[in-house]
């Protein structure tokens, strides 16, 4: 199966790979997986006092589409409010990367990851 140019670009030059301090109260961590492929994706956001995502990092062990989806979403969420980031739909990612139907679930994984990170951040803030 041929990957789109955008997928290859993100796969070869992934943006924002790395780790933020998960114990920092301004950091939210989302860890999700796709059991069928054995893929695992970690996405972290650092949120400012006024609810803006200042930084985002990811680590994904999986196929090119999963890496590209998480790389793209970290680019998108930076500078957004957590509400805006939480409203990103997997279809937008799939469309931007021209994912074939069998790889749509990789974009779903990225959407799940950002939602999980936001939820983790909110839980920490509430605590």
């Amino acid at each position: 199966m041929a990957y789109s140019e955008k997928v290859i670009d993100h796969y070869e030059k992934p943006r924002n790979v790395g780790t933020l301090d998960k114990n920092d109260t301004s950091v939210g961590t989302g860890l999700v997986g796709a059991p069928a492929c054995g893929d695992v994706m970690k996405l972290q956001i650092k949120v400012s006092e006024d609810g803006i995502i200042e930084d985002a990092k990811f680590k994904t062990f999986g196929c090119g589409s999963a890496i590209a989806s998480s790389s793209l979403i970290t680019e998108w969420v930076k500078g957004k409010t957590i509400e805006e980031a939480g409203s990103i739909k997997n279809t937008q990612i799939a469309e931007e990367l021209a994912l074939p139907p069998v790889k749509i679930h990789c974009s779903v994984l990225a959407e799940d990851a950002i939602k999980a990170a936001i939820s983790d951040y909110k839980t920490k803030k509430g605590a």
């Binding site: 860890l31 997986g33 679930h105």
Partner: peptide, 27 residues
């Protein structure tokens, strides 16, 4: 159907943490 083709269903966080940790060690 545990390993459903399009299934991203919720996975036990412990399993994911172990997977992430071991994949990082390998990387």
């Amino acid at each position: 159907d545990v390993l459903k083709e399009d299934g991203n269903g919720p996975v036990d966080p412990m399993i994911l943490m172990e997977a992430m940790e071991m994949r990082e060690a390998l990387a």
